[in-house]
């Protein structure tokens, strides 16, 4: 379903500021003027079969989101390859396509088409989305007036309305209230039992253990461990404990 072979992702760390002419020329010669290389992921290998649920764990800045972006096709591999079969619903950030000046109604269509759906498809599922987001009375007000939780609800509803083959979820549900989080978890579990492959990033180890059956632990762009969820999570927790001491 998803195959990641020897994946390396390159980032641009270039600082905007060049203070003096000397530095300018040094950077020019080293070709670092607009580009300073940083390898966010190095030699990642991963094989995910249909129906599996994988948790991605690791400390901040370790490359979890970058791996999700590479799998979603947002970032292209610098070296190695990513092979994905099936339709992906990426939830990297909820409501990424929202325009704050448009109303909720207009944003549902805009966000839906950003995800590659047709207008007709959105017409058919419009009521379903509004129902799940529970935002009936605010449909025609601009979403700049919405709270972040409300925006997250709207974004999640639009993104999960289809039954994608692969669901990619970055840590996004933290802003929702308990009731909505529960609703989202139920929806994700439903999708999982329906054969959807899940990729899930969270710092909440308990929810990873609950939702996923496999996990990969990434640290500073390198795979530390991958395999069965409990073993990986325990090893990760142990290393965190050790850091504290």
């Amino acid at each position: 379903m998803i195959e990641v072979n020897d994946l390396t992702i390159r980032f641009n760390l270039a600082s905007e500021k060049v203070d003096n002419l000397k530095e300018y020329f040094i950077k020019l010669v080293k070709k670092e003027l607009m580009f300073q290389e940083f390898l966010a992921l190095q030699h990642i290998n991963l094989k995910i079969k249909k129906g599996e649920a994988w948790g991605l764990i690791g400390t901040n800045g370790s490359g979890k989101s970058t791996l999700l972006k590479a799998i979603s096709g947002i970032m292209k591999p610098y070296k190695g390859e990513v092979i994905v079969r099936g339709e992906i619903a990426p939830l990297i950030e909820l409501g990424a396509g929202f325009d704050m000046n448009l109303t909720a109604r207009e944003n549902i269509y805009l966000n839906g088409t950003v995800l590659g759906h047709s207008k007709k498809f959105m017409d058919e599922h419009f009521d379903e989305i509004v129902e799940f987001a529970d935002l009936h009375e605010f449909l025609d007000s601009p979403i700049k007036n919405f709270s972040s939780g409300m925006k997250a609800r709207l974004g999640f509803s639009v993104a999960t309305m289809v039954n994608p083959d692969i669901l990619v979820v970055d840590e996004i549900l933290a802003v929702g209230d308990a009731r909505f989080r529960k609703k989202c978890n139920i929806r994700m579990e439903e999708m999982l039992s329906g054969g959807t492959t899940l990729l899930y990033v969270s710092h909440n180890i308990d929810s990873v253990k609950k939702l996923c059956d496999h996990a990969i632990w990434i640290n500073r762009g390198k795979t530390m461990m991958s395999g069965e969820v409990n073993a990986v999570c325990d090893a990760y927790m142990e290393s965190l404990e050790q850091d504290k001491k």
Partner: peptide, 17 residues
Amino acid sequence: YKYKDLVVQLVSRDLKL
């Protein structure tokens, strides 16, 4: 073809705003 409706949405957003 797949994203034609997105183009329509983006154009109508520009005109509306």
